[in-house]
Simulated scan of single mutants.
Amino acid sequence: MTALPAAWWPPVLLALVLAGDAALSARPPRFIRECLDGVGFPRDWWWTLIVIKALAAAGLVVGIWTPGVAVAANVGVIAYFCCAAAAHLRARSLGSAFWVNCLGMLTLSMAVLVLSLTL
């Protein structure tokens, strides 16, 4: 096994989704505002999520050519969405934002890691 993704497209797919999420977060639509307010994430810190998602997307793309970087970025994305899920559970904010957005992204991130290591 190599530290490079077995296929280039799973990390690129996740990178595109994260880049889109980061772009949306610059001027968050209602569903993102409700999600962040629902878990009590302070508005003064919302900018950090844009930075995290943009860096993760960049790491996924760079990792196609640099051993270990895509895997590390992918694991970081999984950790991020595990923390987001924990925040939703702690705040009892279990609406569609939790089920569709948070768990959907967690599932996508885990699938990309598995596909990256096995294809």
Rank of each mutant, 00 (worst) to 15 (best):
Y80Q: 14
P11A: 08
W65I: 11
W46C: 06
A19S: 15
L106R: 07
F81N: 13
N74L: 10
A15R: 03
G95S: 05
V77G: 12
M105S: 10
A70P: 07
G59E: 09
W45R: 15
P42T: 08
A57T: 07
A72E: 06
L94P: 06
V61T: 14
G59C: 00
S25I: 00
G59L: 02
R43P: 05
S25Q: 13
E34N: 14
I52G: 07
M105A: 12
G63K: 00
L60V: 10
A57F: 02
I78D: 09
S25R: 01
G63N: 09
P42W: 03
F41T: 08
A87S: 14
P11C: 10
D21I: 09
I50W: 00
A54H: 02
W99L: 14
G68S: 09
A97Y: 01
L106A: 08
V12L: 15
A56I: 01
V71S: 11
F31G: 02
T107K: 00
V71D: 12
A54T: 15
P11E: 08
G68L: 03
S96W: 12
W47R: 12
L49N: 15
M105T: 11
G40H: 03
A84Y: 09
S25T: 11
K53W: 00
I64H: 05
L13K: 04
R90C: 08
A23P: 01
F41H: 12
A85N: 08
A19N: 06
V100Y: 12
A54Y: 02
V61P: 02
A84R: 04
L60M: 11
G63Q: 02
F31W: 14
V71E: 13
L106S: 08
